[in-house]
Simulated scan of single mutants.
Amino acid sequence: MPLLICPNCQTGMNEIQRNGVHIDVCPKCRGVWLDGGEMEKLLGQVRQYEQEYEAEIERYRQQYAPPPTHHRNPYDTDDDEYYKRHGKKKSKLGRLFDLFD
């Protein structure tokens, strides 16, 4: 006989164990019921996995980090900076209209 009745569909809930936490699940509507402290246990496990994942990413970055780049001239590839320094090249028609300025 089930310990809990699903508040949604009034069906007896089954108790299962996942990662050391007892969870009550409704077989009909798939609803989940967590007793006191079970959510904190699950969240603690998630935090632990996140910390391990971040540590692994940091180890990977340290191992495969690109070498530091030396001075890079930003004007080499940036056309906007070139036009700021030299001005955009005008066409012959544009030069003609400069006569009226």
Results as ranks from 00 to 15, higher is better:
28 K>Q: 14
20 G>Y: 03
66 P>K: 12
41 K>H: 10
42 L>P: 02
19 N>D: 15
83 Y>D: 15
90 K>A: 00
21 V>D: 13
52 E>T: 11
20 G>Q: 01
89 K>Q: 10
8 N>Q: 14
50 E>N: 13
46 V>P: 06
38 E>A: 15
49 Y>R: 15
6 C>K: 02
84 K>D: 11
8 N>P: 03
79 D>E: 07
34 L>I: 09
95 R>M: 00
41 K>L: 11
45 Q>R: 10
50 E>K: 15
63 Q>N: 03
3 L>S: 05
4 L>V: 09
72 R>H: 08
3 L>F: 12
58 E>T: 08
45 Q>L: 15
85 R>L: 09
29 C>V: 07
46 V>C: 14
32 V>C: 07
36 G>M: 09
30 R>P: 02
44 G>V: 02
30 R>M: 11
14 N>E: 15
61 R>A: 11
18 R>Q: 14
6 C>E: 00
64 Y>Q: 03
70 H>R: 11
92 K>A: 09
73 N>D: 11
100 F>V: 06
9 C>I: 07
28 K>A: 15
50 E>G: 11
11 T>S: 07
40 E>K: 12
78 D>H: 07
35 D>Y: 08
34 L>E: 08
53 Y>W: 12
22 H>L: 13
76 D>Y: 15
17 Q>P: 00
67 P>Y: 01
54 E>N: 03
29 C>H: 09
99 L>P: 03
17 Q>F: 00
69 T>I: 05
100 F>A: 04
36 G>S: 14
66 P>Y: 08
58 E>F: 06
18 R>Y: 12
25 V>N: 07
44 G>P: 08
44 G>M: 03
53 Y>A: 12
74 P>Q: 06
2 P>H: 14
56 E>C: 10
100 F>E: 02
34 L>W: 10
18 R>L: 12
99 L>Y: 04
83 Y>R: 15
52 E>G: 04
18 R>C: 07
21 V>P: 06
14 N>R: 07
101 D>N: 06
51 Q>F: 04
3 L>W: 09
3 L>V: 07
35 D>F: 08
35 D>C: 06
65 A>I: 06
93 L>A: 06
25 V>I: 13
7 P>E: 13
90 K>V: 00
42 L>Q: 08
17 Q>E: 14
6 C>T: 01
44 G>H: 09
90 K>C: 00
8 N>T: 13
57 I>S: 06
21 V>R: 02
52 E>H: 08
31 G>E: 07
23 I>E: 12
61 R>L: 12
